[in-house]
Design a protein around this nucleic acid. Sequence first.
DNA 1: CGCACGGTTCGGCGGTCGCCGAACCGTTCC
DNA 2: GGAACGGTTCGGCGACCGCCGAACCGTGCG
Lengths: 236, 236
Amino acid sequence: MTSKDPRAGALARLAALAADETRAACLLALLDGRAWTAGELARHCGVAASTLSEHLGKLVGGGLLTEERQGRHRYVRLADARVAQLVEDLTAQLSPDAAEPPRGLRQSGAGSAMARGRTCYDHLAGRLGIAVTDALTARGLLRQDTGFALTDAGLDWFGALGVNLDGRGRRPLARACLDWTERRPHLAGAAGAALCRHLLERGWCVRIGSGRAVKVTGTGEQALTDLLGIDTAALR
Amino acid sequence: MTSKDPRAGALARLAALAADETRAACLLALLDGRAWTAGELARHCGVAASTLSEHLGKLVGGGLLTEERQGRHRYVRLADARVAQLVEDLTAQLSPDAAEPPRGLRQSGAGSAMARGRTCYDHLAGRLGIAVTDALTARGLLRQDTGFALTDAGLDWFGALGVNLDGRGRRPLARACLDWTERRPHLAGAAGAALCRHLLERGWCVRIGSGRAVKVTGTGEQALTDLLGIDTAALR
DNA sequence: CGCACGGTTCGGCGGTCGCCGAACCGTTCC
DNA sequence: GGAACGGTTCGGCGACCGCCGAACCGTGCG
C-alpha cells in the first residue's frame, strides 16, 4: 500500500466494475449494441430495480456505459466500441479452458437462433459471422495468417459494396473477435461494424424479436451467395 | 440472480482477480515477463508476506499466474501471452481519458530509462518499441491502415533476419499494444515477441539492472540503423 | 546441529459491498 | 386530478474480503 504502480489503483477500479455478477450480466446483455432501460436490465438480472439503479450508477460513473434519459425512462448502452471490445476480450479469455463441451443441440429454441446468427455489439457473430469471415478470407479480402487485416482487394470490395470505411476514429479497421459458440475468430472492428450495418440497412438480415439474434432474409441469401459465395443453407 | 447469462459469473470471477489494488499491482509488475518471488512482490506492493501469499493463491488458482517452486522460493509469472495481452488491454483502456498530462520530464531517473525502452511482457515498448514499429511500417513490412498485420515483405524480412515465426500456437502473429508512455500502438503478438527475443539474444539490447527497462547497445544502434534506418539518437 | 529465512496457515478485525423494502419523485395516461 | 409506472434514495442487514500478526513448516547456510 506504499508505492506500487500508480496505475494499479485505476486498474483495480476498472476491473471492479466487472467484478460483480449482476454488473457482468449487464455488460454481457449490452453487448448486443442496443440501449436497454434500467427496468429491462433489472428483470434480466433478477434483482430489484433499486439494486440495479445503483449498479448503473457505478457503470456510468466508471465510463463503461452512457445514459440517455427520455421521459421516465433511463436508456443505457455501452459507452463505445472500446468498451465492447474489452468485454469481448474478457469473455474470450474464459472460453478456451471452460470445460463446457461444444454444447450439443440443447436449447434448440432461442439458443439455436442465437447460434445461427447474432450481433456482438455492432458486428456479426454466430455461424453467420463465421461464414462471412471465412468467405472474406477465402476470397483474399481478409488475411488472418499475418494478423487480422483487410487486403487491398478487401478495401476495394468494401468500396464497391458502397460501404464507407472513412471517418472511423482511432478504431482499428479490422479486428478479431472470438465467437462464443463457434470458438473461432470473426470480423470485428470498424469494418465488421460497417458490414453489419450494411446488411441490416439493405434488409439482408433482420433482427428476430427484441433480442440480438438475427436471421438472413431471402434477398439476403441471394446477396451473400452472389457477393461471397456463401452457402446459406447452413444458416437457415 | 435468477437466470442471467451463465457467462456472467465466470466473467465476474475473472474480473475480481484484477479488482484489488494489490493484485493489480502484481499483474502490472509481472508485465515485465519475468518471474518474481513472492517476497519481491510483497515488498513491491508494500503488504505483509502473508497477505501476498493469499493473493498469489487466488491469481494462480484463477489461471492468471503460473508458479514454479525452487527450494524455499516460489517463483510466479504471468500464465501466458493471453493474460499479458489482457492486462495490457485493460491498462490501455485507462490511458485515453486519464487526466494525466503527457508527463513532462519529471522522474528523470529510472522513469526516463523506462520511457526510452522497456519490455512489455515479451515485446518492446517505450520509444524503442514505437521506433521499431514506425520503421517497420514505413518500410512496408507492417500495415496498420487495414488492421495490424505483417505484409508478405514483412514475412520475408523476418525470415531473412533468421527469426523463426512458426510454431506459435493460436497466438496472433501481429497485434497492436498501446504504449503506456507514448500513447501509440506498437508491435506485439508472436512477431513482436520474437523480435524482442532476437534483439536480446544478439546483444543489440540489454536489460538495465533488474527492471524491465532496456537500452540499445553500440552494435544494436548499428544494426537498427542498417536494418530499419532507425535514427537511434533519440533512444540514447 | 542450530539459526536465519522464505513462505504458508490461521484467527480475528474492520471496512466494503451487494442486496432488499420502503419512501419518494417525476412522467404518462386515463 | 388521480392512478399507474419507471426510476432513485435511504437505511439497514448480512456476507465477503483484504489486511495483519503469530505460529508454523521447510529449505539453506554457517
